[in-house]
């Protein structure tokens, strides 16, 4: 089943240039989709359109069969959660506990149920030990984990990561990527991740490539990420595929490969 259907979506920031230009795509339930594109290609604009922070110029968005309109905004936002790029600017509460509670308060969760929910989801992102910590005492990665807990607490079906790892250090990036994989594999959530990280893309089920507001490629990462066109639109191809190309120049017979593990295994069989 498709949980999200985007049809002929266009959006402009009012300067006659379409930031999103006639974009259509579908997202399957339980799938992990990555969206890539250079800065300014319209990636984050799509995220904001999906949760109704921006209003489309043309086209429509359906979330689990419900059309995204002003009247349905509250329903849609109960279905989709989003983690933004900047860890500081989405930490609303004065402690981890209060921050997770913020969304619960908005959705009228009874006060007596809150503690149990807060504890459960802080556990899920390994932040239970920090429940009473203030944001200034947390690292960027920890703040992002709190943001994820705050969203999971509202039990959405779909979660969007809008460059959620781009401001983190390697450890923070790794942590968040692990949480994403865990949500995808164990909780079977639908995940949309907007990213620059080629290594994350190859882990996903499906990738959408944006350039100047248009979808230029879409499909399985193992097919899309080996296309040289990516380089011409300011994106990178996976390291493993660069090696594959070089090997072919040296007449080594090897099939397309986008992960390091697969590459090593193929070469080990050839020795």
């Amino acid at each position: 089943m498709n949980v999200i259907e985007v049809n002929n979506l266009s959006f402009s920031y009012g300067d006659n240039i379409n930031a999103i230009d006639n974009v259509s795509f579908k997202i399957k339930e339980g799938s992990y989709t990555t969206i890539i594109g250079h800065n300014g290609s319209g990636k984050s604009t799509i995220a904001k359109l999906l949760i109704g922070l921006l209003e489309p110029l043309k086209g429509n968005i359906m979330v689990e069969g419900v059309p995204l309109t002003l009247e349905n905004l509250s329903i849609i936002r109960g279905k989709i959660g989003i983690v933004f790029q900047n860890p500081d600017n989405q930490f609303i509460g004065s402690t981890v506990r209060d921050d997770i509670a913020f969304g619960l308060e908005n959705y009228m969760v009874p006060q007596k149920d809150m503690d149990a929910i807060i504890e459960r989801f802080s556990d899920k992102v390994n932040m239970r030990a920090f429940l009473n910590s203030e944001p200034s005492r947390l690292s960027g990665g920890q703040k992002q984990r709190v943001a994820i807990a705050g969203i999971l607490a509202m039990s959405p079906d779909i979660i969007i990561f809008d460059e959620a790892t781009s401001m983190l250090d390697p450890k923070g990036k790794e942590d968040i990527k692990n949480v994403i994989m865990q949500l995808h594999k164990e909780s079977k959530m639908t995940i949309i991740s907007i990213t620059h990280d080629v290594e994350e893309v190859v882990e996903s089920d499906n990738v959408i490539v944006l350039n100047q507001g248009k979808i230029v490629m879409e499909g399985k990462p193992s097919k899309v990420m080996v296309n040289k066109k990516l380089l011409s639109i300011g994106l990178d191809i996976p390291f493993s595929y660069k090696v594959v190309e070089e090997l072919r120049k040296q007449k080594v017979k090897i099939s397309d490969e986008v992960t390091m593990e697969g590459l090593v295994n193929q070469l080990a069989n050839l020795i």
Binding site: Q250, K251, V252, L267
Partner: peptide, 13 residues
């Protein structure tokens, strides 16, 4: 990558 591939390609079928 080139320097690594040169070494590796000598050792594979």
């Amino acid at each position: 990558i080139e320097s690594l591939v040169k070494i590796v390609s000598r050792q594979v079928k």
